[in-house]
Design a protein around this nucleic acid. Structure first.
Lengths: 248, 248
DNA sequence: CGCGATCTTGATTCGTCTCAATCGGGGTGG
DNA sequence: CCACCCCGATTGAGACGAATCAAGATCGCG
């Protein structure tokens, strides 16, 4: 069921693509070596559940490549996405042993895992790790609060525009695509996943995307490939103050 | 304007009411002594703004008594509360020097403050502080994610019930009121503040409170004093699984 | 080529917002 | 001491936006 193919993947921390952004970012080379001893890779396929909410969680780790989602579900099936895990993001909570959310890989994904207990021990002896984890957690808290404004106060159209903004920003930061020209990227989520993120139905998501297309804010090629001719126009539709830091 | 009356208040950390829950919870007595040297108290009146979003923030601190709110505002005035700060909660973000949110005291409030730079220095030399701050930040992140489900997926009635649940829980934990009998507490927020927390209008808040009263889920004395005859009934209305840990 | 999954579009319903009037309690000043 | 005022809360009527229910359209894939 877990479809483990960990064996195939091995990597030196030094060459790791998330070396400078993950929880290990501040580690010195000797600290890295000790991490290297306790780490192992796991691969997940698109659609596969990494952890179920409530399950015993005996590892933590970092997303190396691919995308995962964090979701909460009510008894009657209503679901809300509460986090989007991108490469370098941390999964799991030191000091807690059951998962609070469902974690699902939405694309093929590779994780760099640590068994929880050895990691916790190492964390208590390695301030560089704890410091970095604090920093990352504070960033996530800011992102969650930002998202609370989206969920609580924005219209459906603004919600879609906000999501596109976030995806566009992230994509630009990966591709160093800082030119002011049109932004081009792929949506990493289905309409339904977008709806779960935005607190909408998938029909409303579809309608609002169509509306933004009709109004020339975006253009689509297929269902996933998006072009944004004017990023400031998109920011405007999101209801954010112009250039929220990215092009400052 | 800042209405400083700090002078009047002095307190030994040992006797501090939030000693065992705040950011200093894990400190040894020698560490406490050093904190004692750099701390100072500030008093705020109900309604007073502690910090404006975007302002330079040169202190951090803990709420000692009273309640404050964390809010975000869009240009057109729509506002969303993103945090409720209760005694022992931490204000400010080490490593950042402008405030990301408005902080407003909703009751008279006392804060235990530290100038940011000395606190940051002390934190880097005192793992006990950093550890506790990480733990508190992880808790806040969980709370924020819990709230995302409320904002994104719950109905107005469920939102009100969820808020009452949270306030009742907190109140019970303070008063050690663990009997199964009726819970009694005061709402620390106006209808408008509740609306800002819940992503609703104040009219809808008022209507739903009336509806819950009419249906016997709660009873009111005046506008703020609430009695909950059956807590499980309230949990049910909130859409949560029965007894979310409190009476487990 | 046809099947299924995903997405789009339409018609209608339902919930919450908006606008507006009224109520009630606590404090103030006459 | 009481009338008044002000602020917060309540209640109502109507409008609007998103959900729901229901067909189809498009794409990828076997």
């Amino acid at each position: 069921m877990l479809n483990e193919r960990s064996l195939a993947i091995t990597q030196e921390c030094q060459d790791c693509p998330i070396r400078h952004r993950a929880v290990c970012a501040r580690c010195e080379s000797d600290e890295l070596e000790r991490l290297e001893e306790i780490k192992y890779y796991r691969k997940f396929e698109a659609g596969q559940t990494v952890i179920w909410s409530g399950d015993r969680m005996d590892f933590v780790g970092s997303v190396v490549s691919g995308i995962a989602t964090l979701t909460q579900t009510m008894e009657d099936g209503r679901t809300q996405m509460v986090g989007l895990l991108l490469p370098s993001d941390f999964v799991g909570r030191p000091g807690r042993n059951t998962a609070a959310y469902d974690v699902v890989a939405t694309t093929d994904m590779v994780m760099c895992c640590f068994r929880k207990t050895p990691f916790e021990e190492m964390m208590s002896r390695t301030p560089h790790i704890a410091q970095r984890l604090l920093e990352m957690t504070l960033d996530e808290l800011d992102a969650a609060r930002e998202w609370m404004l989206v969920l609580g106060r924005k219209t459906a159209r603004e919600k879609i525009a906000s999501l596109l903004t976030i995806i566009a920003r992230r994509d630009a930061s990966l591709k160093l695509n800082t030119i002011d020209g049109p932004l081009v990227f792929d949506l990493p989520l289905t309409r339904e996943a977008m709806a779960d993120y935005l607190g909408l139905t998938l029909e409303t998501v579809s309608r609002q995307i169509s509306a933004l297309r009709k109004d020339g804010v975006i253009s689509l090629e297929g269902k996933r490939h998006v072009t944004v001719p004017d990023f400031n126009r998109l920011l405007d539709e999101a209801g954010d103050d112009a250039d929220g830091g990215m092009f400052a």
